[in-house]
């Protein structure tokens, strides 16, 4: 694969960076704000701790998937990302051909 010309690469970088800042900064601020609110609920209300249960449930499940994702990245699971769709069709074809030969014979 040939890499795009340098000026196009630079434009792509600028667009990605601007979008990242525009999206990530407000979401980050919102998220941190929500964390403070969450802390306030847990601390402030007598029954606030019950809000904790579903969030902890969620975090436990998501942590597992975050670890799985990092593991997958580390093990090259996303390299050559379009290859598995070809391989899968190919193995199917081979299995079917083999089966057809068996049935014929």
């Amino acid at each position: 694969m040939t890499s795009p010309p340098a000026n196009r690469q630079r434009t792509m970088f600028i667009v990605t960076a601007v979008l990242a800042v525009l999206i990530l900064v407000p979401s980050g601020v919102g998220f941190v704000n929500k964390l403070f609110e969450f802390y306030g609920v847990i601390k402030g209300e007598a029954s606030g701790a019950f809000a904790f249960t579903p969030v902890v449930n969620y975090l436990l499940a998501s942590m597992g998937f975050l670890c799985l994702m990092l593991w997958a990245i580390g093990h090259g699971m996303f390299h050559d990302i379009e290859r598995p769709k070809q391989t899968m069709l190919e193995t199917e074809r081979m299995l079917d051909e083999q089966r057809a030969t068996e049935v014929d014979s």
Binding site: Y58, F65, I81, E82, K85, L89
Partner: peptide, 30 residues
């Protein structure tokens, strides 16, 4: 893909769908 005898349009996009489900789905029940 097996019935249409052609690969899925984008495998990359299908993985975006998978990881999106993994991270966003569990919190919606409420």
């Amino acid at each position: 893909p097996i019935l249409l005898k052609k690969p899925i349009w984008s495998h990359g996009l299908s993985l975006v769908g998978f990881w999106g489900l993994a991270f966003f789905y569990p919190l919606q029940g409420i």
